[in-house]
Design a protein around this nucleic acid. Sequence first.
DNA 1: AATGAATGAGCCTTCATTCAT
DNA 2: TATGAATGAAGGCTCATTCAT
Lengths: 197, 197, 197, 197
Amino acid sequence: MPKLGMGPVRRRQLVDATITSIHEFGLADATVTRIAKKAGVSPGIVHHYFADKDELLFESMRLMLKNLRSQAVARLTKAHTPHERISAIIDASFAPEQFSPKVTTAWLALYASAPQSKNLTRILTLYHHRLRSNLIYNLKQISPSANHVQLAEAISALIDGLYLRGALNPSLYKTTSPKTIVSDFVQSALTKGGQYV
Amino acid sequence: MPKLGMGPVRRRQLVDATITSIHEFGLADATVTRIAKKAGVSPGIVHHYFADKDELLFESMRLMLKNLRSQAVARLTKAHTPHERISAIIDASFAPEQFSPKVTTAWLALYASAPQSKNLTRILTLYHHRLRSNLIYNLKQISPSANHVQLAEAISALIDGLYLRGALNPSLYKTTSPKTIVSDFVQSALTKGGQYV
Amino acid sequence: MPKLGMGPVRRRQLVDATITSIHEFGLADATVTRIAKKAGVSPGIVHHYFADKDELLFESMRLMLKNLRSQAVARLTKAHTPHERISAIIDASFAPEQFSPKVTTAWLALYASAPQSKNLTRILTLYHHRLRSNLIYNLKQISPSANHVQLAEAISALIDGLYLRGALNPSLYKTTSPKTIVSDFVQSALTKGGQYV
Amino acid sequence: MPKLGMGPVRRRQLVDATITSIHEFGLADATVTRIAKKAGVSPGIVHHYFADKDELLFESMRLMLKNLRSQAVARLTKAHTPHERISAIIDASFAPEQFSPKVTTAWLALYASAPQSKNLTRILTLYHHRLRSNLIYNLKQISPSANHVQLAEAISALIDGLYLRGALNPSLYKTTSPKTIVSDFVQSALTKGGQYV
DNA sequence: AATGAATGAGCCTTCATTCAT
DNA sequence: TATGAATGAAGGCTCATTCAT
């Protein structure tokens, strides 16, 4: 009998190595050989667990989105009011495991290559849809009269923009908390006099 | 006798072809040969006008940022109040020539590869600094007590986030105007009760 | 306790799977993994029964030649005249088990790779020698004056040529019987007036 | 201006190197790098002139068939009787430039891989058709009552078989002329008493 | 005996870059 | 200035073979 059940272990190792390699070398130089070396395996084994490099990249993006979602779900179970739930969603995006240079760089690189990949576009769109629904649902309960669609889009774009800029300049949000930026924005928007109320 | 002054013309042709190619094929498949063909020249000539491919990519990003800046400058000369100047800056980012699928895709692709390029990081950082100064300067005049740094960062991130999402989904902002999203955000922030006031 | 006598069974399974795989995928794509899968075993076990892939291919060719010979021997025991014995040899080559697309394709592929393999060349040459001796021996008894060497070579080449063409076009000999082609050729050659008489 | 008109020259060089390499190393080991080295060029240039390796192999087969046809055409223009034309066709196949170890080995290797290649199957079938038509046309004039279809097939198969065996054993036809083998067969077949008359 | 995970060499192909013309 | 032929270094991927279990 050979070593059994190596599949999930190896797949996870390789996906981790992929994210790290993209951060370290950039997407263009994150070669299969380089990724394999970082995972401590031979280049050949990669294609034992992934059909091709595209699948490996896709799974890496998928893991990042899944982690993001896990963070959100964990926080949402502890939230009891619409306001808390909005905060939970925002906080999840800036949890230290997600909003780290390693992850934001890889996230941005894969995001940027999505227009050329049906699969990447698909899961990103799916993630966007879920986030949007979630936001809209809670926003409605806070302020029935607001333009929920526009506000949800604004929150989402703001989060993405902070990721984008964080990827370029890892020290940018050492002083200013990105979480605060989003929270304050939501607060402003929903305050009397705010355009979204 | 050689054609005179072909330099600037050719360089511009090639930079345009680069942006178009990145949009059309993606950064990874925007090869020198492909770009040259789109520009209607031979692959060899590219290295006559650009030291290497990196320089060509760098110049492409630089042109996009320069165009963005030109748009802003043109609008700023017609603006007379701080509010108008803030609007001018925002409007510039969403001028049709800039906020088109062709440009946003290329912009995002190059942005995402910036962490691996000192030059790209440098001009992007420079652009960020300018935008930030400009925003802060005008915000101060509108509301002396606001957290100008944070607000400027929020506006910038929101704009970048809208670019990012526009690149993935070109039809996203057919209904909701991205310009309105940013304007409304600024309005909320500066309205009494907003966190930024 | 280990299963006893699995050796010959497994070897035969693998050789059969090899022939089928060559027919189905071509020699170049008849990989060890593919062959193993067709035999219903794991890739690793192949090297338990065969030193390397070359040996597996060699044994496959050897089996085909052995089957050809078995067919001939079976028919020769029932033949009583030189003419019958010549016919027996020819008929053996076109027995349905041999002259099937599966076998002719594999036979041709291995034949074509023989120039690069000492072992393949050796058994093919051995087979040729035996066939030739057998033909010459019987031809001598039919017509002492004929050019037996040339005639034997002609018959052999004609049979091989029919295999070759049958491999390319499996439906070629649906109407014209290849056996008849050879028989008629022999008849012509040995008839008064024929160049071989 | 670059070196112009290198296309045809390089293509021919590479096709020649392919045939030689197949003879020397076998089809499986006739790698692009090996072929390029034999042609005295870099591996990269191969794909400048051929879409992929398959096209290179295809063109190699095509050249061999074209040469075969050229030989036949040249001889046919000097032939004046049906008998002479049949001889011309046969002689063409055994012209020293064609019936050399180098060519027969490559011819056999590519022939054997034809079942996996639509293109190879197509040109081989086309060649077969032409040869067959040509033979049948002339056989009809010699002997109106013969079974022309079967005889043409027999002649074709005999020629192919001699190529096949010549590829395995280059010294086989040093003593016995393959041309004589075919000629004598035709003679026998068309002589009174022969089965084909 | 048997598995399938793992290796590493090598293949086809692509591509930035150079160079002769 | 301009061409496109040519180079050579990778890159993704495949595969015979080995090995721990």
